[in-house]
Simulated scan of single mutants.
Amino acid sequence: MKATLRYRLLIAGALIALLLLAACGKDNGTEASPSATSSAETSVPASAAASGSETPSAEQESGKRIYEHAMGSTEIPTHPQRVISIQYTGAMLALGVKPVGADDEWSVYPLLKEEWAGIEDVGDPWTGLNLEKIISLQPDLIVTHVEQTYEQLAKIAPTIFIPWLKYDVRGQIAEFGDILGKQEEAAQWLADFDAKVEATKLKAAELIGPDETVAIVNLRPTNQFIYGNSAMGGYVIYQALGLKAPETIQRDVIDQKLAMLEISEEVIGDYASADHVFLSVLEADGGKERAEEIKKSGLWAKLPAVQNNRVHDLDWDTYFTTDPLSTLKQLDAFIELLERDRG
């Protein structure tokens, strides 16, 4: 029995080694990248300016460049053709680049579903990536935000690590324009995005007054959060459209550069006493029922937004994603939400 087990382990090890050798020996220049869409100018992150020791002409000749990131320096293609994306798929899709494979974490969200079609699922970054599937896709670049699996991925193909929420929408576009060799597309996308934001501001001004405040409240099965200006619609509401947060949210969340702040149920009124409350609910595992209980409480009834019928249901699946493509679509979704609630 022990000999048989050792034999099986040797065979499994040999198969994995062969897969790795196949991945290392692949021809990276066999497939062309999809056509790019638009993108625009922004302040470029520091890594976007880093080009390593090679001159531009040398990079063009070699097709390689050095990219500096949180885990060190990595030689990557100047124009990657077969990218595996862990979490950053929306930024790539915004620039017209469809990864050959991506994690499945955001594939179910409605704002990305159409563009996601055709991308191979490589597993969940938290519960387990499918490394054999990644090898079989023969990537020439892997981008990830999960430190725990970085070394495993780096053995398959050049891998860069970008911490999640390091960059906002504009920063993501500038950074991935540099990584993917899509600088012109990034500049155009950002110009189009800025124009879209300005047009949306005009519409929002007709629905929310300049002195009115807005709060984003998130109820979950066992706890609750107040969101700042980077996630759960916070980028659109506070950064892009410039809507005002109550003083407590500005002081304790936004000024502290927190994506969200966990609070006790007893102090919801201290943070949600705004003219408008945008409420998102994580309905699974009893979250929906708990939210209904809170909405029947005296604390909730005292909120100005509740008394004035200005509580807006912020769909979790629509506003959970924070990538550039989703954010662009959230601008329209936000106005549609306000217009619908106004009746």
Rank of each mutant, 00 (worst) to 15 (best):
R8M: 15
L10T: 14
I16S: 14
A17L: 15
L21H: 13
N28M: 12
G29Q: 05
A32C: 04
T37Y: 04
S39H: 08
V44S: 09
V44G: 01
P45G: 11
S47W: 07
S47K: 10
A49N: 12
G52S: 01
S53I: 15
E54F: 05
P56G: 12
P56N: 11
E59I: 04
E59S: 14
G63I: 08
T74P: 00
S85I: 09
Y88Q: 07
G90N: 11
A94I: 05
L95E: 03
K98M: 03
K98V: 09
V100G: 05
L111G: 00
E114G: 06
W116H: 09
A117Y: 06
D121I: 13
N130L: 02
E132R: 08
Q138M: 11
Q138S: 13
V143W: 01
E147R: 11
T149L: 03
Y150P: 01
E151K: 14
Q152Y: 04
P158F: 02
P158A: 07
L165N: 15
K166C: 06
Y167G: 03
R170L: 07
A174C: 07
F176S: 05
D178V: 04
E184M: 08
W189I: 12
K196L: 14
A199M: 07
L202N: 14
L207H: 02
N218D: 10
Y227G: 00
A231C: 01
R251T: 14
Q256M: 12
K257I: 08
E262M: 10
E265F: 02
I268E: 03
S280F: 01
G286L: 10
G287Y: 09
A291P: 01
E292N: 09
E293H: 06
K295W: 00
S297I: 05
G298C: 00
K302Y: 05
V306H: 07
R310I: 07
F320D: 04
F320Q: 08
D323G: 02
T327P: 00
L328N: 04
D341R: 12
